[in-house]
Amino acid sequence: MIATDTDILAAAESWRREGRQAVLATVIETWGSAPRPVGSHLVVDGEGGFQGSVSGGCVEGAVVEEAMEVMTEGTARVVEFGVADETAWRVGLSCGGRIRIFLERID
């Protein structure tokens, strides 16, 4: 079972070694009742498959979309989801929190 953030980082490494692409997403800041703590990881592969979670399921879909862009461009970026953000409502961080996520490609 992939349960801990250690496993996520190990998965990211083994994916790269198998020749799969990988983008790592890390929760860097939270406000209010964010579902996953700072430091939580999600890793996304070139096909959009992923392991781990950054929001317990609320915004994972949108994070994977952002990750696919980072995979193509190669530049790290910070994205924010929260109640003030219309996108967040659409993708459903309905718990009332806000999170900032750092996305980086594993090269």
Binding site: L9, A10, A12, E13, R16, R17, I106, D107
Partner: peptide, 23 residues
């Protein structure tokens, strides 16, 4: 992140040594 950095981080963790990744 460079794969080397990730590999070092995982290796340190496997050896039960603490690290801080500064980004």
């Amino acid at each position: 992140m460079h794969l080397d950095t990730l590999a070092r981080l995982n290796a340190e963790r496997a050896a039960r040594r603490a690290t801080v990744l500064v980004t």
